[in-house]
Amino acid sequence: MATGLTLKELSKKEDRFTHGHRMCSGCGAPTVVKMVLLATDYPVIASNATGCLEVSSCISEYTAWKIPWIHTAFENAAATISGVETMYRSLKKQGKIDKDIKFIAFGGDGGTYDIGFQSLSGAMERGHDMLYVCYDNGAYMNTGIQRSSATPLGADTTTCPAGDVIPGKLRSRKNLTKIMGAHNIPYAAQASPSHWMDLMKKVKKAHEFIGPKFMNILAPCNRGWRSQTNDSITLSKLAVNSCYWPLYEIEDGVTKITYTPKDKVPVADFMKPQGRFKHLFAPANEWLLKKVQEEVDKEWEKLKKQAECGC
């Protein structure tokens, strides 16, 4: 295959994110990182915002990264890597370096949608040649499942606990992928590890644009989602097939859906196996479950319209 994207060919490449990391058993994030790095055919330098990925992949002298990697604070992964990229451009101009190097920032949803948002927005606007990857597990997992602006409507977290007072989170998710598209950057995309080929194609494509790129990648967390250790891929598949997490890209302002589910499944199929949505299946909360479905449908229809009109 011309893209080199067969598992057989990919398996011959070196893993630049190694075993021995200490993410929980069955965590979705390491698989996301592994796929992003496998699809990157260049030397790469990464920054990483504080969060599960960062604290569990480099503990004291044990690092899972086989690339130059910088632990940044929670809020500035994008600012850090944009500084490194600027230095690189200067060194290149001075003739002190001639390698083609790619720059990637990794951040969780808390570190991206919320606290790192202004540094991300700034780096995109300044036009740095970099890829920002958000691994979205839908809450501040590392500190014990606090809600973020990526937490889905109705989810139970420790700061929006489902009970007699509220039925979980009462606000809807922020649509960060579209917000990044609205920065008029060359490339913004949404991906899921279940659809590994789609994900890797998007990473490869992103690297070929000069300028700022953004990818939002679903990364199931069995601890926070209150699910099983074996279901991160199954759940991400259901997220895509229910259109809760549509796969699409925004290239130079034009939206393209990269995968349309053959049979769109109810969003309840995605939610049912997750304890964070358990309360929504009680008769008293039926209205909220209905609302979740309506929102997913509405967003999907909107996305399809955008793709149709090429805007």
Binding site: H19, H21, C58, Y62, A64
Partner: peptide, 18 residues
């Protein structure tokens, strides 16, 4: 430990068996 806790060996997590 090296100053700043800089890790000089990439992929050293392989020394930690999980």
């Amino acid at each position: 430990l090296p100053p700043g806790s800089v890790v000089l060996e990439g992929g050293s997590a392989v020394n930690f068996k999980t």
